[in-house]
């Protein structure tokens, strides 16, 4: 078990490393001049050249890459509260003597770790809120549809589900925004707000958008999976024992039908934590997803790299989590 975990961790690390490396190459061969971005449009050529040297952009890409990796995780002075920070470690996040340095954003002129530290919690909250919506709606509708298979309710659920998965999130989002924020004025149009109450109101629209889209998919999955399990022998046995239909459905059918959902939920979790790009962009929710669009459009390579690191780590960790949960729920996989 421990050996398997170690191997999984190693391969996860390798994947993140590979993604980072490819992104580094891509974001550094983009035809843009970061030195000019930093220096500003009014700068003289001499200043641009000086900044280019300062940023190390005049060195070969291999050296830059080695430098990036070396800074990514390194050992540095432990920073005491309130003590002045060594300028060479100004863009580091520290845990004791361990430093993590993702560089400084060209556009925002702040350490990338600090920007990500602001953004990540918001994206995680949005992701979790969306997941709650899609699990509640999706599993609920799926179970009802399967329990009343062939009925009007079932047909409606299946129809809405396929319509839902065929509606792109941005379309659904604009629709909900129009209805709930513009027409009914129940919720803010977009943004993040300043107080906790405003945050809570602002998260509803993006979470609903993501959640309804996901729920459409879950409904169908849970329904089809339940109908599959309904034909199993153990269900017939349960019925033959005289158990009430309700108990059969919840105890014997749903539990088995939820197993494939674990994989899907895990992948969704990874994707959502990595940033729901469209929903965050549409509702101006200042999370990692919206940040990735800005970073890419600005050609802000340190920021792009930071976002890529977070996104790929989220996906890989979610995959590992799925494997772990599988082993927990399905004893057959525990060897």
């Amino acid at each position: 078990m421990r050996q398997r975990l170690a191997r999984r961790l190693l391969s996860a690390l390798l994947i993140v490393w590979a993604v980072t490396t490819v992104s580094f190459v891509i974001s550094h061969v983009l035809p843009s001049d970061p030195a000019r971005l930093v220096a500003g449009p009014q700068a003289r050529p001499a200043d641009v050249a000086r900044i280019r040297t300062q940023l190390g952009l005049d060195r070969p890409i291999v050296i830059q890459y080695a430098h990036y990796l070396a800074r990514l995780a390194h050992v540095g002075p432990t920073v005491a509260d309130g003590a002045p920070v060594d300028p060479s470690h100004a863009s580091c996040a520290t845990v004791g003597p361990l430093h993590v340095d993702l560089g400084t954003s060209y556009q925002q002129r702040r350490p990338v770790v600090a920007i990500l530290a602001d953004r990540l919690p918001r994206t995680v909250f949005l992701g979790l809120a969306a997941l709650v919506v899609q699990l509640a709606l999706g599993v609920g509708a799926g179970v009802l549809a399967a329990a009343k298979r062939g009925s009007m309710l079932d047909h409606t659920a299946v129809g809405l589900s396929i319509l839902g998965v065929s509606t792109p999130t941005f379309l659904l989002g604009v629709g909900l925004q129009f209805l709930l924020a513009h027409k009914l004025r129940l919720l803010p149009l977009d943004g993040f707000g300043r107080t906790f109450g405003e945050h809570a109101a602002s998260i509803v629209l993006p979470a609903l958008t993501l959640g309804i889209f996901g729920a459409a998919y879950y409904t169908r999955l849970v329904r089809d999976e339940m109908l599959d399990v309904l034909h199993d022998d153990h269900v017939r046995t349960a019925r033959a024992k005289g158990l009430p239909e309700r108990t059969v459905l919840t105890r014997h059918v749903l539990r088995n039908a939820l197993l494939p959902l674990v994989t899907v939920v895990g992948m969704d979790l990874g994707a959502l934590v990595g940033g729901a790009v469209v929903a965050e962009h549409l509702f101006r929710w200042p999370g990692v997803g919206a940040l990735s669009v800005t970073a890419i459009l600005d050609r802000d390579s340190p920021l792009i790299m930071g976002v890529v690191l977070v996104t790929s780590t989220a996906v890989v960790l979610a995959n590992m989590l799925v494997d772990g949960v599988y082993a927990l729920v399905d004893p057959r996989l525990r060897q």
């Binding site: 994947i15 993140v16 993604v19 490819v22 992104s23 891509i26 974001s27 061969v29 983009l30 990595g274 790009v277 990735s292 669009v293 890419i296 459009l297 792009i304 976002v307 890529v308 996104t311 790929s312 996906v315 890989v316």
Partner: peptide, 11 residues
């Protein structure tokens, strides 16, 4: 699958 494809498009 772990790679952000927006970046690829832009690149």
């Amino acid at each position: 699958l772990a790679f952000p494809f927006l970046l690829l498009v832009l690149a």
